[in-house]
Design a protein around this nucleic acid. Structure first.
Lengths: 102, 102
DNA sequence: AGGCTATTTCGATGTTCATGGAAATAGGCA
DNA sequence: TGCCTATTTCCATGAACATCGAAATAGCCT
């Protein structure tokens, strides 16, 4: 994990539509959800959904898997955990070093 | 915590410059860091830094405190924890409900 | 092959963002 | 008050983004 990857993932999640989409997939669990199912659930145009999904996939937060004519989308839990770890990582690592009074 | 706030915070972190900036403050710990100190450390123009800092403050991720002519910046740890919680929250809440075979 | 459904790509439009120099402001000190 | 340092606001520019309809593509089934 590094700044480039982390910021790309955070940017991908930093849009209300995509965050809603991502959380829908996170809630769905390991079984995932077909694109069409997500579209109905979130009631958005297919092209818009596809666009956002592509960004989440490019960021490594979502994986897609073909099942016939449908595409099943899964949240990539390991990626999410790595990102969460990166954010809390090194918290306060320099604690005190800028004050020197304790 | 809700989608609006969370996505705004994630968007704020979703830029390499701001993420670096934020992590610098997170590492600094409770003592915080003056704007000028951050500027020297990250070697960026003051106006650019101020712009990014403003976004982090607006998102509620950073708090600023005057100390004479300097402004001390602190990472808002509770906000960070709330955001991390929101992301992992409800993970797999619907697990199995879309398949019905177990 | 032909048709059907699921999904993506293309293209256009308006919006927001990132950057940084120059000028303005805030606070402290003599 | 006048000066000095710290920081922000203003402004302009180029780049990236969000949205969505229409057309294209992918994969199945008969």
């Amino acid at each position: 994990m590094n700044i480039e990857i982390a910021s790309r993932q955070l940017e991908a999640l930093g849009n209300p539509t995509r965050l809603t989409l991502y959380r829908t997939l996170v809630r769905a669990g390991r079984g995932g959800l077909p694109v069409g199912h997500v579209q109905e659930r979130l009631d958005m145009p297919a092209s818009t959904l596809s666009h956002h999904l592509k960004r989440l996939v490019a960021a490594g937060l979502v994986r897609q898997e073909r099942a016939g004519t449908s595409l099943i989308c899964h949240a990539e839990y390991p990626a999410m955990n790595a990102l969460l770890g990166f954010l809390s990582d090194e918290c306060c690592a320099e604690e005190g070093r800028n004050r020197g009074d304790d």
